[in-house]
Amino acid sequence: MSAGGELIFLFCGFIAVVTAVLTVSLRTPLRAAVALLGHILSLAGLYLTLHAHLLAAIQLMVYAGAVVVLFIFVIMLIGPGAEPKTKTKWLTLRVGAASLMAMVGATLAFGVSSIDRPYVDIDQCRGAAAECGQFGGVDALSDAIFRQSAVPFELVSVLLLVAIIAAVAVARGHSPAEKKAIEARRAAQGGAAGGEGA
């Protein structure tokens, strides 16, 4: 791994950890969302160090461009009511579970840190790009996705479609108050219609 690569790793890794901590700890959802954006950008940087160029781009487009925007959109939709009330329900248990999880993460990190594989220097293709493609590049990854994994890809498209429909189906509808109002209006109309019929 090149020295530049190491530097990028250290920088992006640090940012990733800090933004992750901020994401989960900030009280205001909007700020948390911004921290999440930073987290995603830093991860895209990490992907670059791993020769996953296209993936880094997708990360930026899908996550930063779509998901985070969606989050912010919802935060705006809901408004300040989204502020959670301070309740201490199961506080001990939550703290216990969280610290247990932190220990698990730490143990895992310690355990896996010693795993090592010989570093493979990816010998860039000497010939024309069209012939062999570049590791993690558009050609090679597209080939992997659209040829080798065409069926899962199509299934993912179906999944997304289903998700869209599900989102619409779930988010449609009215709050109890709205429902009441609508029913009242309908009843008024129905009564009028009945009156006309008679």
């Binding site: 950890v17 992750a20 989960v24 969280a98 999880m101 932190a102 993460g105 730490a106 895992l108």
Partner: peptide, 14 residues
């Protein structure tokens, strides 16, 4: 991997 584990732990704790 260690970095990923740490991030995962942070996410889980969150």
């Amino acid at each position: 991997l260690a970095l990923a584990s740490v991030l995962f732990g942070i996410g889980a704790v969150g």
